[in-house]
């Protein structure tokens, strides 16, 4: 690298450098700033979306509690909020929550088709692995109740069941009983009991189902 003999030369050199690169630098700064504001704006938008959805969800759950307490049948408000969450706030987790809650409401009103739709929606749309498990288990159980044993079974096969294994195996047992496979059901229940999680309230229920099949000859 050559040195500079005088200040003038150095200034001259800088000016030249600036003439060559000035535009790129200003452009770079501009791109940087646009990126920042764009990013921040997008983040703000997401937060606002989330907060609005959260407020709606709070409203919805409060209405649900009140409905339960006062034992009224009017769920117009609840449904309206849920629809809004599903349409306008699909990218937030609250649409998943509200769909799951609506599925329960539908089952309570014996509108199984609607419940199935809600759960399918969650299964197809949620980003959460855990909520996908919940939706899948509940959906399969509803289908079983409707007599659609094969779909119910295919839905829960080849699934990485993780910590939901005990629930999947219990459900599998329930389906196999309906399909007339007592031996298979026994195996599923035994495995379900062996896969219990930290706090399992359901253990005695699975045990009861298994006992009813007469699993052991003592």
């Amino acid at each position: 690298m050559e040195g500079y003999r005088t200040d003038e030369e150095q200034i001259e050199h800088l000016k030249k450098w600036w003439d060559e690169n000035g535009k790129s630098i200003i452009g770079g700064i501009a791109i940087g700033l646009i990126a920042i504001f764009g990013w921040r704006g997008w983040q703000d938008h997401l937060v606002t979306q989330g907060e609005n959805a959260s407020d709606l969800y709070e409203q919805m759950t409060a209405d649900m509690r009140q409905k339960k307490e006062t034992n009224t049948d009017s769920d117009k408000g609840i449904e309206a909020i849920a629809n809004q969450l599903n349409q306008d706030y699909q990218s937030t987790p609250y649409s998943t929550f509200s769909s799951l809650l609506l599925a329960r409401e539908a089952v309570e009103k014996d509108d199984i088709d609607a419940a199935i739709d809600h759960l399918r929606w969650v299964l197809d749309n949620t980003d959460s692995n855990e909520f996908r498990h919940l939706a899948r288990l509940r959906l399969s159980r509803l289908l079983l109740g409707e007599g659609d044993k094969d779909t119910a079974l295919s839905l829960i096969e080849n699934v990485d069941t993780g910590k939901f294994a005990a629930s999947y195996l219990e459900l599998r047992g329930d389906i196999l009983i309906q399909q007339g496979d007592t031996k298979g059901a026994q195996d599923a229940y035994i495995q379900s009991l062996a896969n219990q999680n930290s706090i399992r309230g359901n253990q005695s229920v699975v045990q009861m189902k298994l006992d009813d099949l007469g699993a052991h000859q003592l």
Partner: peptide, 18 residues
């Protein structure tokens, strides 16, 4: 209802923990 709620919540927590 009670036992399923317990179960599923503990499955969710265990899965997250995992």
């Amino acid at each position: 209802l009670r036992s399923k709620a317990n179960d599923e919540w503990s499955s969710v927590v265990d899965e997250l923990k995992e």
